[in-house]
Design a protein around this nucleic acid. Structure first.
Lengths: 211, 211
DNA sequence: TAGATTGTTAATCGATTAACAATC
DNA sequence: TAGATTGTTAATCGATTAACAATC
């Protein structure tokens, strides 16, 4: 990694990295090497863009040869910071919270689900695949006594502010927010607002205007 | 709407429209008018950008006054194409499919959920809020006999290809795809790939690199 | 070696911001 | 009217693409 350029990587570049990684993952064990033009075919990004994106982080390729699939995969994983493990809690154990739970629990190496939180007495205390659903009232204490890195926030809009109060004074590093409100900026906590409804609206636009 | 510029609106502009609309919605009934600089404060986009975005679609503002909240909200809804109603089916009635169902069923005017589809015999035949969970084998027939506009695709990756075959020869207008594969381009069907995992990875990057 | 393909520089293209005349 | 704020043009900034020397 080029130390000096670390923090001025444009967001547009970062957003492409997961897609590179996803396709490389498909080729693991199948291909030894891949060229930027082959990677272009499956990702849809231009080969020129791919080469320029990658060269921001180092010289991963070999002239006249291409990129080693396994090591490029590893490098991108490293850049994304997912060769370490993050402890995650899921707040809101409704359908969306459970969907994320079943998707990430024991499936992705870099995610370790510590537990879920909810207000609903009917599900508080249940165990899902060995992980407990805690009462939301226990959140602050839990945050104080456990090393939580990431929070997936899957609660209704009206519940967000109260929960955010607890989160904002904790040591968590990031919030993956699915509630349909933009969470405010925070000095120490990175927030990723995922607004599913917004993506549906852009699809609606395309349906209407681009036939 | 400026007829001639309709189809060359950049994606970057379209992506901002849902956020404008969301904040305007919050102001409905509270405020009569809003200026681009007030809208800038709550959305985080610059007032200059807001004015330029909006002016692509028409002269919605009044000099020296600002924008009428209600009518700007209506105009943006019109631009996004959500003043008509779309018939939606949800394929895959697991946690994610159900989450979308409970969120959109009878809540958003522009979405009308016709039903859900699944392979699991345990849930096929169930009714959720009056809407049935159909057997996936019934999909092709259903598509032929009903006017389906939109499909939310919430099935595991391995099930996607088979389902896509049916969808690609139907009259649907759009696919909101949550499966972790990129669906191919299609002449008549707009595809919106929502890769939640990719957004988690970009959050991981920020946690590692931007403190 | 000859062919292939990277990494990088320069050129192009597009998107954002600044500024201000028009005008309510 | 005077103050406020739009819509639009021009300037700036950033991102993508094209081209090619370096070299495996």
């Amino acid at each position: 990694m080029k130390e000096d350029s670390k923090s001025n990587i444009p967001t547009s570049v970062i957003k492409r990295l997961p897609k590179y990684r996803r396709h490389l993952k498909n080729f693991l064990g199948e291909l030894d090497k891949i060229s930027s033009s082959e990677l272009s075919k499956c990702t849809g990004f231009s080969s020129s863009q791919i080469r320029q994106d990658l060269s921001r982080f180092g010289n991963f390729g070999h002239k006249g040869y291409g990129y080693d699939v396994q090591s490029l995969y590893d490098e991108i994983s490293e850049i994304l910071g997912i060769r370490t493990r993050y402890n995650l809690i899921i707040i809101g154990a409704g359908n969306l919270g459970q969907a994320l739970f079943y998707y990430y629990n024991d499936k992705e190496d870099f995610i370790n689900v510590l537990g879920l939180f909810d207000v609903n007495p009917k599900i508080v205390g249940l165990k899902m695949k060995g992980k407990e659903v805690y009462d939301i009232d226990y959140l602050t204490e839990f945050l104080a006594n456990n090393s939580v890195d990431l929070v997936a926030l899957c609660v209704p809009r009206r519940a967000v502010l109260e929960i955010y109060k607890s989160l904002s004074v904790s040591n968590i590093k990031g919030i993956w927010n699915f509630a349909y409100v933009d969470l405010p900026e925070h000095d120490k906590i990175n927030v990723k607002n995922v607004h599913l409804s917004d993506s549906l609206l852009t699809l609606a636009y395309r349906i209407k205007n681009i036939e």
